[in-house]
C-alpha cells in the first residue's frame, strides 16, 4: 500500500478523533504543564514538568540535573521556596528553576512529598582511585585545612536530615559544582554555613568527596 493510500482523509479523521478521545482517559492531567494555575496538583507538575529533567521517579539521567529521589522533603521545600523567590541564584538554578515563581505553598509541599517518597537515588559505580580519600574527607574532614567532616551534618550514611540534603547517590558532577558554588559565591544564602566549612578544600579534594558520595 502506498503512503498516499494509507494516508486517506478518513483514516486521518479517525486518528484525530482518537487523539481527542484519549484526552479523556489520561491517567494524569496535561494541566501539569501549566505553571501558573494554583489549582494544578503538585503531582501533575512533577509528572508533566519536573520529570522532563529530574526523571519521573526523581532519578535524573544527566548530571546536569540533581537526583531528587528520596531527598529530604524539608530540603526540597526550602530549595523550591528559594527558587520561587529567586533567593537561590547559582547559575544552574537560575537557568532552569527561576520559572517556578508562581508555585503555591501547597504545590511546593506536594512536589516535595512526591520526590522525597520515591525510592532513594541510586549510586553509580565509580572507578575513581580517590574514593578512599573522598571517604576519609567525608568521615573525618581535613583538620589541617579546617574542613569539617561532612558526616557531622549530613549523617554517617550521607542521608541528610531536615533541610540538610541527602548526598548519597547524587551525581558527582552536580555535587562538585555545588561545592564550588558554596566555596566561591554567595549564590545559595541558605547554605551559607557551607562556605565556612569547605572554604579551604581544594578542587582535587572536592572531586574526591563528590566521587565517593556518588558511589554510595
Amino acid at each position: 500500500m502506498s503512503l498516499t493510500k494509507l494516508y486517506t482523509p478518513k483514516r486521518l479523521s479517525f486518528l484525530l478523533l482518537s487523539l481527542l478521545l484519549t484526552a479523556c482517559i489520561s491517567p494524569n492531567s496535561d494541566k501539569g504543564r501549566n505553571l501558573n494555575d494554583p489549582r494544578t496538583k503538585g503531582i501533575d507538575i512533577a509528572i508533566q514538568d519536573c520529570s522532563n529533567c529530574h526523571g519521573l521517579n526523581g532519578q535524573s539521567i544527566s548530571a546536569q540535573f540533581p537526583k531528587l529521589a528520596g531527598q529530604q522533603p524539608d530540603y526540597l521545600k526550602a530549595q523550591l521556596t528559594d527558587f520561587k523567590g529567586h533567593i537561590r541564584r547559582d547559575v544552574y538554578g537560575t537557568q532552569f528553576m527561576w520559572g517556578f515563581t508562581n508555585l503555591t505553598q501547597l504545590q511546593v509541599d506536594e512536589l516535595s512529598v512526591y520526590f522525597s517518597s520515591q525510592p532513594p537515588m541510586n549510586g553509580s559505580v565509580s572507578s575513581s582511585a580517590n574514593l578512599k580519600e573522598g571517604e576519609s574527607i567525608f568521615n573525618n574532614g581535613l583538620p589541617a585545612q579546617g574542613v569539617l567532616a561532612c558526616s557531622s551534618c549530613h549523617g554517617p550514611l550521607a542521608l541528610g536530615v531536615g533541610e540538610i540534603p541527602r548526598l548519597a547517590g547524587q551525581h558527582s558532577s552536580y555535587l562538585y559544582k555545588q561545592i564550588m558554588v558554596f566555596k566561591y559565591t554567595d549564590d545559595r544564602p541558605r547554605g551559607q554555613a557551607m562556605k565556612q566549612i569547605i572554604h579551604n578544600i581544594n578542587n582535587e579534594q572536592a572531586l574526591s568527596v563528590a566521587g565517593y558520595l556518588s558511589s554510595l
Binding site: Q48, N52, F96, F100
Partner: peptide, 30 residues
C-alpha cells in the same frame, strides 16, 4: 521562566536539548 540554554544546546539557538525537544513535542505548552 527558563534560560535559552534549557532548551537550546549550549545556549546556541536553534539546536534543541532533550528538554527542548520535549517542550516542542508537547506543543510548546510548558
Amino acid at each position: 521562566g527558563q534560560s535559552c540554554v534549557a532548551c537550546h544546546a549550549g545556549g546556541q539557538f536553534p539546536e534543541l536539548t532533550p528538554y527542548g525537544r520535549i517542550f516542542k513535542l508537547t506543543g510548546y505548552t510548558i
